[in-house]
């Protein structure tokens, strides 16, 4: 059943993620126990966050259902997200969801080697996917996580990145676009690093989230070593209003990003008109 009534949630914590302050991670708590108990989601799904008076905006969930808390990392871009960024701990929000399909963690990904490639703040939903994989690490093969940002100060989840680096069961590659003072890690665009890492396509699934230009240049080196479009999962975004396949705003030809997606294989995306 379609619903436009958000669940009331409170902001429990706010972390300013990036040096320019454009990205904040909000820890959200349901006001009502029955909403908290009834909540289930799949990494890759999104919610509509609403600020009364400003409106609603779609935001990918940054946390995995295996975690205690619900996290949304929000880029300050338009009216709603700007209003969101002005809120304080304890303030009230509306949350509608979970919406969309999510990554096939229990489907095509299970038992496979997992390659996650993220550019910029699109890493948020891959954080959710990675946390779910780590919670059931034995269900998956090798895990490769490639993540790039413009500069060290634009990297999200920095504390967790350090923890992941020390685990030993993730091949972690964190890169920045250009040399920066104090940065001893990888330097180079995500496609370049992906080409160097060259993860094997054998028994593997890749989740790639980032700006279209990054995806465009990441694919050729992967294709060169045998990756097929059916193995690669992308997450589309389009302007959305209802998030439930009704208002038609997010349509890409006959496909509705909010309801049929936002996660699609690259093979599926290639069959769609270029309207995303």
């Amino acid at each position: 059943m379609i619903s436009f009534m958000p669940y009331p949630v409170r902001i429990e914590d706010i972390v300013v993620e990036t040096e320019d302050g454009s990205l904040k991670t909000f820890t959200l708590a349901f006001e009502q126990e029955r909403h908290r108990k009834g909540w289930q989601h799949v990494p890759g799904q999104f919610v509509m966050l609403s600020v009364a008076g400003a409106g609603e905006a779609p935001v990918g969930l940054a946390s995995s259902p295996t975690e205690e808390t619900l996290l949304c990392t929000v880029n300050r871009a338009g009216m709603v997200t700007t209003a969101l960024h002005q809120l304080k701990v304890g303030d009230r929000l509306g949350l509608r969801g979970p919406l969309g399909n999510g990554f096939p963690l229990d489907g095509e990904m299970k038992g496979k080697n997992i390659v996650m490639i993220a550019g910029g703040f699109a890493v948020t939903i891959l954080r959710a996917a990675l946390m779910a994989v780590l919670a059931r690490r034995q269900d998956y093969g090798r895990v490769t996580f490639i993540y790039g940002a413009r500069s060290p100060g634009m990297l999200l989840y920095q504390q967790e990145l350090r923890q992941w680096a020390q685990r030993g069961d993730i091949d972690l590659y964190v890169t920045i676009d250009r040399e920066a003072p104090g940065w001893a890690g990888l330097v180079g665009f995500v496609p370049t690093i992906a080409a160097q890492v060259a993860p094997s396509p054998e028994n593997s699934v890749a989740l790639i989230c980032g700006p279209p230009i990054m995806i465009k240049f990441t694919m050729p080196p992967l294709e060169a070593i045998g990756w097929k479009d059916e193995q690669v999962y992308l997450s589309l975004e389009n302007r959305m209003k209802c998030g439930q396949g009704l208002c038609c705003h997010c349509n890409v030809g006959p496909t509705l990003v909010c309801k049929d997606g936002p996660v699609f294989t690259r093979a599926q995306v290639k069959r769609l008109p270029m309207e995303y």
Binding site: E56, C242, C247
Partner: peptide
């Protein structure tokens, strides 16, 4: 198809959908 917007008049608000 429709759009959804918040409308606030003198402190009283509502979320509306209307034809787009």
């Amino acid at each position: 198809c429709f759009d959804i917007q918040d409308e606030v008049v003198q402190g009283q608000g509502r979320r509306i959908r209307y034809w787009d």
